[in-house]
């Protein structure tokens, strides 16, 4: 019998005869219950990506990380040990599974050419090369080595860079190196707006 089956209690002996006479089927009645769906999932500790409360979440993925298994997220639940959320989650955190598995996720680089009214698929290599070319051209064109007062400023006002508040500290640090290298002065993030 499957683990999910739940056994009804056998009928008491009294009255069984009568029931038989009336044609009752006295085979064990069973209730089929939903399986406990996360009994063997793989648990990964993470942090909710939405607000700054930083609720601990546990991501349940299908499979045991074996070589031949591709994990997919079947459930996300609060981390009961996390001191701040203690297992609780708001409606957004409670539905993180549907963010991770969202059918609307982007899965290929696209480009919209000047004047065009549609996206075109593009390979990663072509996209990176195209972007790098734009960045270089703009920087070469707009680079200000010295300002109007003759002070060395080494900046590239032709380019602006925003974002990072939804990504890791490490990403943000790399991003700072990126803008420092390119001399981007126009830099902002959600910290301001």
């Amino acid at each position: 019998m499957g683990l999910t089956r739940r056994t009804f209690v056998k009928a008491g002996t009294a009255g069984v005869g009568g029931a038989v006479a009336l044609g009752f089927d006295l085979k064990e009645a069973r209730a089929e219950m939903r399986a406990f769906k996360i009994s063997r999932t793989t648990e990964t500790r993470s942090t909710c990506p939405y607000c700054a409360v930083s609720c601990g979440v546990i991501i349940h993925t299908l499979g045991d990380k074996a070589k031949n298994a591709t994990p997919s997220v079947v459930h996300v639940e609060g981390d009961p040990d996390h001191p701040i959320n203690r297992g609780t989650l708001c409606p957004k955190g409670s539905t993180l599974r549907d963010d991770i598995n969202n059918p609307n996720r982007l899965t290929s680089p696209k480009v919209r050419r000047p004047g065009s009214d549609k996206w075109e698929d593009i390979s990663w290599d072509a996209a990176i090369a195209g972007i790098a070319k734009h960045i270089k051209e703009t920087r070469d064109k707009c680079f200000v080595e010295k300002n109007a007062k003759g002070q060395v400023v080494n900046r590239n006002p032709g380019m602006a860079m925003i974002g990072g508040c939804t990504d890791t500290n490490e990403f943000n640090f790399l991003q700072w190196k990126f803008i420092t290298a390119l001399g981007v002065p126009y830099r902002d993030s959600q910290a301001r707006v």
């Binding site: 019998m1 739940r6 209690v9 009928a11 009255g15 029931a19 009645a29």
Partner: peptide
């Protein structure tokens, strides 16, 4: 037969039965 932690106390439309206690 599976042994489960939960017995049935009451079941709809059942003439007989109930948790054994």
């Amino acid at each position: 037969m599976s042994v489960h932690s939960l017995e049935i106390r009451r079941s709809s439309a059942s003439l007989l039965g109930g948790a054994t206690g």
